[in-house]
């Protein structure tokens, strides 16, 4: 509906306004929606494969891995890579960084049985990646640092159409992987042994889900910066609204919820005179909801 109104408006506005809409507003809206959908899809899958209600790529260190990859390219290798390939190389580095974080978490999950301990492991992993990023910042010039700072605060602005296309492609692939993995994600909720007894391969299901998570997280983190909390909250709202935990309904539900939450966070960030970082407004929306979830499920 919004898009329809926008399309109608486009024909009745001045070229300057049209530029504002096409180059600023519309890309930002689309980016926020894509980012929310991607992070929620990643969060939903991580909550299922780790059977942990507050797992998401941000808290488990996957986003930090992606940030590290993106930061390495932005801060160190920016001059050596041509600008044409810059976007795709940042996205690829973020995906590789996310993959590295995911590999460490997967390896740890074999040893660590407790959901809470695994979360702490992920948080520590995030700190570690952030420490390396901080070290990288020292060895870079002022201009790169400025770009880097605005990116690391999280923002849906200044994302270009080519970047949006890369994001959308990654998210579509991630979503396809999740849809193929749907019944595997369902059965994994009942435990590895039960899943294996029913003929499923828990390892295969986890790997496919993590691949999807890395694609989604990497794409969002590369262009919008590390954005947390939407991935934790959206799956819970979707399950509550749909009255079902079956991935057949929660995948679409969580992606929709995530889009709405990110649009909300973006709106909030633009309301004051100077735009606030989205990671900040997201925390305002997300953290109270996460605390509520924790109070409802004290037996993590």
């Amino acid at each position: 509906m919004t898009f329809l109104l926008m399309a109608i408006d486009l024909y009745y506005v001045s070229p300057a306004d049209r530029n504002v809409l096409m180059l600023l507003r519309l890309p930002r809206t689309v980016t926020a929606m894509l980012a929310g959908a991607a992070l929620s899809l990643a969060g939903l899958q991580m909550q299922s494969i780790f059977r942990n209600p507050i797992a998401d790529p941000h808290i488990m260190g996957i986003s930090s891995g992606a940030s590290l990859g993106a930061a390495a390219v932005t801060l160190c290798a920016a001059s050596s890579i041509g600008s044409r390939f810059h976007e795709i190389s940042v996205a690829a580095a973020a995906f590789i960084g996310a993959g590295a974080g995911a590999a460490v978490i997967m390896a740890a999950s074999k040893k660590v049985r407790s959901a809470a301990t695994l979360l702490i492991f992920g948080v520590m992993l995030g700190f570690m990646a952030n420490a390396i990023v901080a070290a990288l910042q020292f060895s870079t010039d002022a201009e790169s640092l400025k770009i880097f700072y605005s990116w690391s605060a999280g923002s849906f602005s200044f994302v270009t159409w080519p970047q949006i296309i890369i994001m959308a492609a990654a998210i579509c692939t991630g979503c396809a992987a999740a849809l193929v993995n749907m019944k595997g994600l369902d059965i994994l909720l009942f435990g590895d042994e039960f899943a294996a007894a029913a003929g499923a391969d828990p390892r295969h299901i986890r790997l496919l889900a993590m691949f999807s998570c890395c694609l989604c997280t990497g794409a969002v983190t590369a262009f919008c910066g590390p954005i947390g909390f939407a991935g934790i909250v959206a799956p819970h709202i979707a399950k509550w609204a749909m009255g079902s935990s079956s991935h057949r309904s929660t995948i679409a539900g969580a992606m929709l919820c995530g889009s709405i939450i990110c649009l909300g966070a973006d709106l909030l960030s633009q309301m004051s005179g100077t735009p606030l970082p989205v990671s900040g407004t997201m925390a305002f929306i997300g953290i109270p909801l996460i605390l509520y979830i924790l109070l409802k499920k004290p037996e993590l």
Partner: peptide, 25 residues
């Protein structure tokens, strides 16, 4: 086996028929 909220008893039995069901379950 954890009693996961958000599945009916029939859903649970259906999910356990993993090898018999199609991709959509």
């Amino acid at each position: 086996i954890p009693k996961v909220k958000g599945f009916t008893l029939r859903d649970f039995v259906r999910i356990s028929c993993y090898s018999q069901s199609d991709l959509g379950g």
